[in-house]
Design a protein around this nucleic acid. Structure first.
Ligand code: MN
Ligand code: MN
Ligand code: MN
Ligand code: MN
Lengths: 218, 218
DNA sequence: GAATAAATTTAGGTTAATCTAAAAAAATAA
DNA sequence: TTATTTTTTTAGATTAACCTAAATTTATTC
């Protein structure tokens, strides 16, 4: 269908679109996929010719409907493969992303739909990110960052705002994995660090930076 | 490690080496991977520079030890993925080859070793072809074609000499799948077709062409 | 509203993998 | 053993995806 490279561009533009209202900038894409701006411009022309993006010189880009569809399909594959790696092959949640970056380009709808069934049609991946279904529809839960919570409020850890292995490993070591119940006990005024009660039996203090990147369902 | 294309060349040379004593010819490679001889020559130079093949102009090629190791690793991946597709995702044996052609290039030793364990360390793939272990060693059973068998001889279908979907579907329809017990009842002198008794309860006649491509363990 | 800075695009090249057509070498036949 | 055919290699181009450096456009600052 689309080349490995084209797919990576579409995915990058999709992810960047979720953080901005305006069009995605050439530099932002270049930074995310580790290329130079000039290379991005080349590819934008190509994707525009194929009507996968709306591109006006100097104005940034947005995905067209077919571009969005292609991007969501890649994300579906990425997340399902991550579930497979964790649930079936015993990988940790911080070990699966790079392998999924390769597997997401395997081109077979039958394969991915059967994998989906084999995994029991999971709604989220090992990082709590929602998995689009066969039709590209997400089951979107409303997640909020711990820094948005008030003292005394309770929630369940359901996602992360940062996917680096370093951060994920840190969370794991602190017993702050997905599904953990938390209660906000105190917010330190000085540095914004947060005292949590986890699973109603243990207290732990986390920095504001960590708190910011833990997402909960209330 | 090696590019997608380089891997395909190594695999092609490996497979062709098993049918010949001498070096593999440029044209044979070109035909197998659907390119032109000139393109093959280019790639042979490249693989030779990387010491993956022994190449002397006009003489054909053989794999070096490291070339062989790389080829076997790809074949290991191909066959394990085929097992996964059939055993876990419910694909038929004639549907898995093309998908495995893509999956075999996923680059992660941990992944493939865990997949191997997850599948119960199978010794053969859905077509009866042996799967090399982590160290690249095969469990080689001695297979012979039905046309080599004598009347009255018994055997178990354990492999195929032809992997096309058309042939595999035909075998399935005739209940000549892997593991089936057969006994040679008669060989027609006129056209070499063979009358078989399968699983001690049903007789069936197959053409010499089909017989040639069914491999059994005695 | 110029002048400067930043972002983006164009121009011109490179590399991997492909191709066609022509040349050279090896194999086969007369 | 020469002539013819087949196989293989070389020469020269093409395409996708990159790059650097230079030009151009847009955004910021004084
Ligand atoms: Mn990921
Ligand atoms: Mn994920
Ligand atoms: Mn196969
Ligand atoms: Mn097979």
């Amino acid at each position: 269908m689309y080349s490995f490279t084209e797919e990576n561009y579409l995915k990058a533009i999709y992810h960047l679109s979720n953080n901005t209202e305006a069009g995605v900038s050439t530099n932002a894409i270049a930074e995310l996929i580790n290329t130079k701006a000039a290379s991005v411009t080349d590819m934008l022309k190509k994707l525009s010719d194929k009507e996968l993006i709306n591109y006006i010189k100097y104005q940034g880009v947005t995905l067209t409907e077919s571009g969005k569809k292609a991007a969501v399909s890649i994300i579906r594959k990425h997340r399902l493969w991550e579930v497979f790696l964790v649930k079936k092959l015993g990988f940790k949640w911080d070990e699966v992303h790079d392998i999924a970056e390769e597997l997401e380009h395997i081109n077979s709808t039958v394969l991915i739909d059967r994998l989906d069934d084999f995994l029991g049609n999971p709604e989220v991946d090992p990082h709590g990110d929602p998995i689009p279904d066969k039709n590209g529809l997400f089951q979107h839960k409303k997640l909020i960052s711990i820094v948005r919570m008030k003292i005394g409020q309770k929630g369940v850890i359901s996602g992360v705002g940062e996917h680096s292995s370093l951060f994920l490993k840190h969370l794991e070591k602190s017993d702050l994995t997905l599904g953990t119940d938390i209660t906000i006990k105190e917010v330190v005024e000085f540095d914004g660090s947060v005292l949590l009660l986890i699973d109603n039996n243990k207290e732990i203090t986390i920095s504001r930076e960590v708190a910011k990147n833990i997402l909960v369902v209330l």
